[in-house]
Simulated scan of single mutants.
Amino acid sequence: MMVNLFSVFDPSTNILNFSLNWLSSFIGLMMIPPMFWIMPSRSQIMWNNILLILHKEFKTLLGNKSHLGSTFIFISLFSIILFNNFIGLFPYIFTSSSHLTFTLTLALPLWLSFMLYGWINYTNHMFTHLVPQGTPSILMPFMVCIETISNIIRPGTLAVRLSANMIAGHLLMTLLGNTGPSLMWSIISLLLITQIALLTLEAAVAIIQSYVFAILSTLYSSEVN
Rank of each mutant, 00 (worst) to 15 (best):
L16S: 10
I27S: 08
S97P: 02
R161T: 14
T148D: 01
F58I: 05
F142P: 00
P11V: 04
L191R: 11
S210L: 03
L23M: 14
Y92K: 13
T103H: 04
C145D: 06
G69Y: 09
E202V: 00
M1F: 13
L54K: 05
A214K: 01
N121I: 12
F26R: 07
M166R: 15
R161H: 12
T101Y: 13
N85V: 09
F78M: 06
L77H: 03
A168H: 12
S137F: 10
F78Q: 05
E57M: 11
G28C: 05
F83V: 05
I149M: 09
L199Q: 09
P11L: 03
G169M: 10
L130Q: 10
I146F: 15
T218K: 00
W37D: 01
M39T: 14
N124Q: 14
E147W: 06
T60C: 03
I187N: 09
S137M: 08
Y220G: 04
S43G: 13
L104W: 03
M35V: 13
I120G: 01
Y122V: 02
K56H: 12
N64M: 07
A107P: 02
F36C: 02
L61H: 06
W185D: 13
T101K: 07
Y220P: 00
G169N: 13
L201G: 10
S19H: 06
S182A: 14
V8H: 12
N225G: 13
F127G: 00
L175Y: 13
L112G: 03
S7D: 15
M143A: 14
P34W: 12
I153N: 01
L116S: 10
H55W: 07
N21Q: 10
I187D: 13
H170G: 11
L52P: 00
I73V: 13
I187T: 14
T101E: 07
T103G: 04
I167G: 01
H99I: 01
A206C: 07
V8C: 03
N17W: 09
I196R: 06
N225S: 09
L191C: 02
P11S: 11
S221T: 04
P40F: 02
T135R: 09
